[in-house]
Computed example of a mutant assay.
Amino acid sequence: MFGFYRDIYIYVPRHDRRTFVTKVDFATAVPPEPSRGQGRKPYRVVSNLGVFWFVPGKGLEVESLHSGVAIDDVRDATSFPVISGGGRITSPPTTTDLDFIREVIDPLGARDLEFMDSRSRRDLIRTIYAKERLS
């Protein structure tokens, strides 16, 4: 997949050591193959702690941290090196951004599923399903 797109953004809702691991057992995308012009690295990684990019041979570099997050929080939640990016705070979304997400991209609230316990998730899925059937 990475070979077909110019900029790849990866969204990770829970930044922890089980997600940001030192080594993986398998990968679901084609590994970088410069001789074929394929295999681009992710352009940015966005997690619940901040915005990052990978520096080849060095690790994860911080572009910005979300409000209230310290670099030590990121290091504690990552199983490989994290490079401080200078302490920039992620800009919060504007009212226009939030309205667009809530009214155009995800009017049914599916984005909330990632942060719910199983019972609440089940109830929201049922609600979304019922609304989808009506449309």
Rank of each mutant, 00 (worst) to 15 (best):
V69E: 00
W53G: 01
G50I: 00
T90L: 09
G37E: 03
R40N: 15
A77L: 13
G57R: 11
R36K: 14
D72S: 15
P56Q: 02
V55H: 04
Y43H: 13
R44Q: 15
Y43M: 08
F54H: 10
D73P: 15
S84T: 01
P42W: 01
T90Y: 01
V74I: 12
P81K: 02
R75I: 06
S67Q: 14
G85C: 13
S64N: 02
G59H: 02
V51N: 06
V74R: 03
K58I: 06
R75G: 03
E63D: 14
N48C: 05
I71N: 01
E63I: 13
V46Q: 06
R44G: 15
A77Y: 07
T78V: 07
A70Y: 11
F80E: 00
S47D: 08
V74M: 02
G50S: 02
L65S: 06
G86D: 14
G85A: 14
G86N: 13
P42S: 10
P81I: 03
V51G: 04
E61H: 10
G59A: 08
E61D: 10
T90H: 04
S79Q: 10
L60I: 12
G86W: 11
G59K: 04
S67K: 15
F80Y: 11
F80H: 01
G68M: 12
T78C: 03
V55K: 06
D73M: 11
V51I: 12
V69D: 00
I83D: 01
H66M: 14
G50Y: 03
Y43V: 05
V55T: 09
L49Q: 05
S84N: 14
G59F: 00
V62D: 01
V74W: 03
V62R: 05
K41I: 06
P56F: 01
V51A: 07
R40P: 04
K41T: 09
P81F: 01
V55G: 02
P42F: 02
V62N: 05
P42C: 09
G37A: 12
G86H: 09
W53S: 06
G86V: 12
V82P: 08
D73K: 11
R75S: 07
E63A: 12
V62T: 14
D72E: 15
V45S: 10
S84V: 00
V55P: 05
Q38L: 15
K41R: 13
P56I: 02
W53E: 06
W53H: 10
I83S: 00
L49M: 13
F52N: 08
S64D: 01
H66C: 11
F54V: 15
A77F: 07
G39E: 04
L60N: 03
A77R: 13
V69M: 05
D76M: 03
I89S: 08
R75D: 04
D73Y: 09
